[in-house]
Nucleic acid binder design. Structure first.
Lengths: 125, 125
DNA sequence: TTACTTTTGCAACTAAGTTGCAGTAAGAAA
DNA sequence: TTTCTTACTGCAACTTAGTTGCAAAAGTAA
């Protein structure tokens, strides 16, 4: 890990994440890039980008995997844990920069969290 | 909705939820009951129980659907929204009775939330 | 260029959850 | 109790997200 080669696929995906402030689902990427690269490649590149700390992943409300760029993470640690928002109507997801206090729970060690707020986005309400 | 018949399948599932304080995944139920009822039935009964306010569902960290009994909900409204905890090692999930403040986000209407805290449970740490 | 290693494409697979339809059983009405 | 209606169930086939194994291609360092 950490030795990512700068291949065409990697550059293509990174470019998409740079342009895109919102999160992008794996499914969207597979569809978007279906003429340019194989879906297996997409899933594997995303895996590599994540383990390298360039993007982070989380689950959307329907059990699909979403990805977005990281800020201040590395392969050693994903510190950029923040809530996400998903619109019930259009399905769009984005990262929120608010920070929510994680309570401590007796007898359990909490390592990270996935907070998804669900509702209506600006264009849908 | 609201007109649930008390069939054998419904009673079987409700009995499991009564015995079980932890949440149960659909997959676990399908496996547990594979000799007693069809998986289609399980998914459909769960759907009915949820829309009737008897159980609530949410996504686990691996994108599987989990269910747990509701307290104080009805078909009209699922008020029993609380965080869940999932153990990274054994995969077990349970409902937490802490309550977390949901921030309000400009330009977005938040209807509900899915908060999953991930870490190590008592028996795994 | 050579040699080595990572990355890619392909095809086949896995697993969760869904759908359509015909048959069965709850339970209200007679 | 029997009848009738409608909800419910089982089956088989399907859909879809994501994974795996392997051979071929492309990075990279020397």
């Amino acid at each position: 890990m950490g030795v990512i080669r700068k291949t065409k696929s990697v550059e293509t995906l990174l470019a998409i994440f740079e342009q895109n402030k919102d999160a992008v689902s794996a499914v969207q990427l597979v569809d978007l890039l279906k003429d340019q690269m194989n879906k297996t490649t997409i899933y594997r590149v995303l895996e590599r980008l994540e383990s390298d700390g360039l993007v982070h992943s989380f689950m959307g409300k329907d059990g699909l995997k979403w990805y977005a760029t990281c800020h201040g993470c590395s392969s050693a640690q994903h510190i950029d844990i923040h809530p996400h928002f998903q619109c019930q109507h259009c399905g769009k997801v984005d990262c929120l920069s608010v920070d929510m206090k994680i309570p401590s729970i007796p007898n359990r060690k909490i390592n990270f969290s996935q907070i998804l707020l669900i509702g209506e986005c600006e264009s849908c309400s």
